[in-house]
């Protein structure tokens, strides 16, 4: 992996920015160059949200991801908007609980994860985003497993320490789907 460009997109409140932070911390702990750039524009005020993450062996030029190697789509507008931006041979992981259509492209790897439903059923409501990161880790192995779990501890604020285990369990669940 020389450089991995990831675009995460969904509604505000789904933890898009948090998932991105988890990715960059994993990369940082792995000794990689990383960047994280949130959307802060008018689309965010309309309720949708996206976040560019770059994990690279080299210094990062633009932190803005316009041609993602990996697209994580947590709602239909995000898939509609970014499906065609993914590089050929890239990966799309989507929450199939919330997106009721299939990816139309045939030149990308697609993983449908029933993430919101799984989260609900397993008593980890609100962790669909982390289940998807678990799936992404299983498919692409962007860092060591140890650093992925360590990154959870770095990203969860001290006041919400109880959520560390919830997030770790969500990752583990993502490994299995």
């Amino acid at each position: 992996m020389a450089t991995m460009n990831v675009l995460l997109a969904g509604f505000g409140g789904q933890g898009i920015l948090f998932s991105g932070k988890l990715l960059v911390y994993s990369g940082l702990l792995d000794g990689k160059e990383v960047s994280w750039l949130p959307s802060y524009g008018p689309e965010m005020r309309g309720g949708t949200c996206n976040c560019s993450v770059v994990i690279s062996d080299d210094a990062i030029g633009s932190p803005l991801v316009t041609a993602p190697d990996v697209l994580i789509a947590m709602n239909l507008p995000s898939l509609d908007k970014f499906e065609n931006a993914v590089v050929p041979g890239g990966t799309i992981i989507l929450d199939s609980s919330l997106i009721d259509r299939k990816v139309t492209r045939t030149d990308v790897n697609v993983h449908y994860v029933d993430a919101s439903k799984l989260a609900e059923e397993n008593g980890m409501k609100g962790s669909a985003n982390i289940i998807i990161i678990g799936k992404m880790f299983k498919e692409l192995g962007f860092c060591t497993e140890e650093n992925l779990f360590k990154a959870v501890e770095k990203c969860v604020p001290p006041k919400k320490a109880a959520l560390i285990d919830v997030n770790k369990n969500a990752l583990r669940l993502g490994f299995t789907v």
Binding site: K21, V24, L28, E33, V34, S35, W36, L37, P38, Y40, I60, P63, L64
Partner: peptide, 10 residues
């Protein structure tokens, strides 16, 4: 600029 202000990196 807004990019450097909003982005995170190590």
């Amino acid at each position: 600029d807004g990019m450097l202000g909003q982005m995170m990196e190590p």
